[in-house]
Design a protein around this nucleic acid. Structure first.
Lengths: 254, 254
DNA sequence: GAGTGTGAAGTCATTCACAGCT
DNA sequence: AGCTGTGAATGACTTCACACTC
């Protein structure tokens, strides 16, 4: 099974980068830009920028470039960030807490609605999570910046939780040896998207399984992305020893 | 400037995954394995596994497969993890603390020797960091598992610090708006490898610079890797909306 | 003139098929 | 027979060149 036709995975990651750069430009009061400017900031070629954008539409004006506001709006839409995603975090150790408080996340329509763990010392604790910031504050400034306090609940209550309110995504920040069963809990609770921060791969199927992975029905339409920062550490070690093998970093899809 | 000849960047990331799987196999007391087993666990094809390994040497026995212990040793060597890397963390907020305490890191020869920040509330605090675990405890079990306590120091003392003891790598966990200047501090202190966790790209060159990036001398041989988990979040959002564009996850590097 | 959008060419990575050991 | 190692083929991504628009 090869890459699906159409859009390279790497292009999606780069799109995220372009969107971040557009936000930077907006903060710098720059109204118009070009593939060249975006390319310089994203550390790719201008060809690459134009090609990546072309996968999704025509957003520029020939001879003139792109207007920051418009391109930003379009990329936001393309990436699915113009809606709100309800997120639960499973695993509220230091990493889970770091994720919950990472300021960037809440700005981009990820809204934390539930926190889960199994540690009795953590359960019941209230944790402050940032709320979604309104990106263009209208005339009446709404008090959305106030952080909310969420209680940490036991994973066994996850299914009951999702039965009560919709949950789109689950962020997994448990130790690697518990990642598979925690993922299983998320799937059984009906969560269809998992971002796994544990340094192990989630097997979409059964918790235990030596042979052929029969993909069970509940996993059928579950999307899993892995973010393993040990990989980053080790890649760095490798390229320190082999600098000649390093290219101009095409942003390794994280 | 395209990818350097030879080894695909993605292959390096996959190698890290294979190494982790070999450690899992060792823990499961499995002595021998094959490209097929590694492939199933790494969620790639067996062809891919053999090709990736072939970039670095011949580690198997035809007709028999690989011995776990030997292949693990070789991959450890290839990835540069058979030596110790001295690491400072810059930015000791929640993310920096999560990194410092991430158990996997210290197992793999990353040794935290210094912690830095600018926040007066943090400076002076002692933080427990795990020490490197001996991977094969010899007859005399050495008390290396005891965590050490490191003080958080001010970034302005970084150069003095590196003058006193060798620092190989710097892990950056500061807010994105300070990432570039913090990276600059690392480079000025002589640190040659930077792993950037902030959601922004480090520009190898000047702190400020609109036009052509003149790569200054101090940055000449500095290696930068980026690990941005906001990218992972947003990629997940995109693929939730466009599941048909998702392939069998070739492990996107970060 | 300046800068986008895009088919075509080129480069790189993955898949395949099979030769070669054990 | 089983499984690795590897040139050759396929396919994907990136680079390029240029037509087109403002």
């Amino acid at each position: 099974m090869t890459t699906a036709p159409g859009i390279p995975t790497a292009a999606v990651s780069r799109l995220v980068t372009y969107l971040r750069i557009l936000e930077e430009l907006e903060r710098e009061q720059i109204l118009n830009t070009s593939s060249g400017v975006l390319a310089a900031r994203a550390q790719v070629s201008a060809f690459q920028v134009r090609k990546d954008l072309a996968y999704f539409g025509r957003f520029g004006t020939r001879g003139l470039g792109y207007t920051v506001r418009l391109l930003k709006r379009e990329l936001t839409r393309v990436l699915g960030l113009n809606r709100s995603w309800n997120v639960v975090i499973v695993g509220m150790g230091r990493l889970g807490q770091a994720i919950a408080n990472y300021p960037g996340a809440s700005e981009y329509q990820f809204s934390y609605v539930g926190l889960f763990d199994v540690d009795p010392d953590l359960i019941g604790q209230l944790l402050e999570v940032p709320t979604r910031r309104e990106q263009h504050v209208s005339i009446v400034k709404r008090a959305l910046n106030e952080p909310r306090r969420l209680p940490i609940e036991h994973i066994r209550d996850l299914a009951a939780f999702t039965a009560q309110q919709p949950v789109d995504l689950g962020f997994l920040a448990v130790p690697p040896e518990h990642a598979q069963t925690a993922a299983q809990s998320l799937v059984e609770a009906g969560v269809k998207g998992i971002l796994n921060f544990a340094p192990t791969l989630i097997q979409p199927g059964m918790t235990e399984g030596e042979g052929l992975q029969e993909i069970s029905d509940e996993w059928r339409d579950v999307m899993v992305e892995n973010v393993d920062f040990l990989v980053g550490m080790k890649r760095l070690a490798f390229y320190m020893l082999n600098p000649q093998l390093k290219d101009q970093d095409p942003e390794g899809s994280t």
